[in-house]
Design a protein around this nucleic acid. Sequence first.
DNA 1: CCTTGACCTTGACCCGAGGTCAGGGTCGAC
DNA 2: GTCGACCCTGACCTCGGGTCAAGGTCAAGG
Lengths: 261, 261
Amino acid sequence: MMIGVTIGQAAAFAGVTVKTVRHYHKLGLVAEPERDSSGYRRYGSAALSRLVGVRALAAAGVPLAEIGRLPDSGTASFAASLADVERHLTDRIDELTAQRDTLRRLARGDHALLPARAVALLEGMPGLGFSADDVTAAQESFVLAKVLVPEGFDDYLDNVESALKDPRFLALVQRSAEVGGWEPDDPRVAELAADLAGHYLAHPAQLKIVTGLQARTETATRYRLIAHHSEGPGTAAARLAALVEAKLRAAGVQLPRPGSP
Amino acid sequence: MMIGVTIGQAAAFAGVTVKTVRHYHKLGLVAEPERDSSGYRRYGSAALSRLVGVRALAAAGVPLAEIGRLPDSGTASFAASLADVERHLTDRIDELTAQRDTLRRLARGDHALLPARAVALLEGMPGLGFSADDVTAAQESFVLAKVLVPEGFDDYLDNVESALKDPRFLALVQRSAEVGGWEPDDPRVAELAADLAGHYLAHPAQLKIVTGLQARTETATRYRLIAHHSEGPGTAAARLAALVEAKLRAAGVQLPRPGSP
DNA sequence: CCTTGACCTTGACCCGAGGTCAGGGTCGAC
DNA sequence: GTCGACCCTGACCTCGGGTCAAGGTCAAGG
């Protein structure tokens, strides 16, 4: 007379796998039942009942460790424990919902989670004659500026927005975008550097694009990461930036120097 | 001239821990940057930019393995991958929400997720003179019946509901509930068994409480698990059940026997 | 020069809730 | 006696890092 069902049947009744039942035994959530002569576990009604109860709690999201410590069903502290689990569950749901919202922004091309104003600036660039690579480079610069100097980012966007309304500045920026294809010793580099420095010095409000961030960062390292982003060493772009900085310094503008604190 | 920032600074900028950055390197999500003379990693703007991008995706719930396989940002398949992740996220949110609902039912004393009718029956028991232990035993029997013979559970509840409207049957059930305190050889056991069997045979509709489940389960094992739940071997309850079954069988009622298939 | 404390290096083990694989024993049916 | 389905134990895998261990490097202060 075989008494009780085997582990496979018990698992099927409770809607779990055999492995799961053994796992519950190992964690002490369900007592190990008697074994028959061949060493198989045999489950009676009490064991099945316990297994179903544990399963109901586990399916409701109660962590297994919690189930092991749970007071008797029906008591007040039992209800309190469940309320605790429910809070935890709600937090997790809120977290995932926030993640999903973030993901939607990311998928909508709201690249790298920049604020709406920055996205608008980037989206206007192709209409002003900039290439897709230019847009990408500008976006990366925005991301870096936001990450490295978050408290100055809004002012930075203010400065860029108003400067781009000046057609002479816009023309200079457009010439600068072409520097990627030049040789470092191209004579146009020095010429453009002179024009840029001259423009900045003639329009102090626009000079703030360069100096505004620096006033906040204090450390040269961050400034250099932003200002010299996407310049390979020894390129025409690097030489252009160095020339402009030198000219501004010569005119008395304070700029961090490589290696200074 | 130290070029680039250290791992701690890069991690702080991206809002992650040092360990996390190294983890990303190990997974190949961010290329290992150059090392300085002392072997420290030095992060330039490109590496920082990449780190921030990876972080944005990870914070949006994209699995790290997915980030590694992700096509270039901006392409159609990139958006498709993100949509995939979003579906996954939504599924998880739905799952957790369902868990929370289940948990609320469990916490509200909606014991073991029985249907409303079963809960109503259990809640009516104390008013009929049953003890808390009796209610618990009945609840466990319900749970077992539901798990072992789900398709017959509704009919079973029908039978129990209508039988309990018969005051003579109710009186018998109340006497049966006291059997837990008796000795197995108590003369009242045989007396009660005779009364129970007589009542079942006189009221075939109520006999279905015993035979209805059996007609569906087919296997003796399941029937015995339900019918003989909460009877320790050698107790008065077990003897009572055996006597009732014997009398019913003698009257021609088909009941599974221990050991039959 | 030496120490102190903060930072960096690699490597190994830990969490939850089981899944999967390996190697072997047992059952009922043919 | 042999097949397929079931059972046994034990060890390793997941995922996104956290934590610990044991040691090297750096800048500042005495």
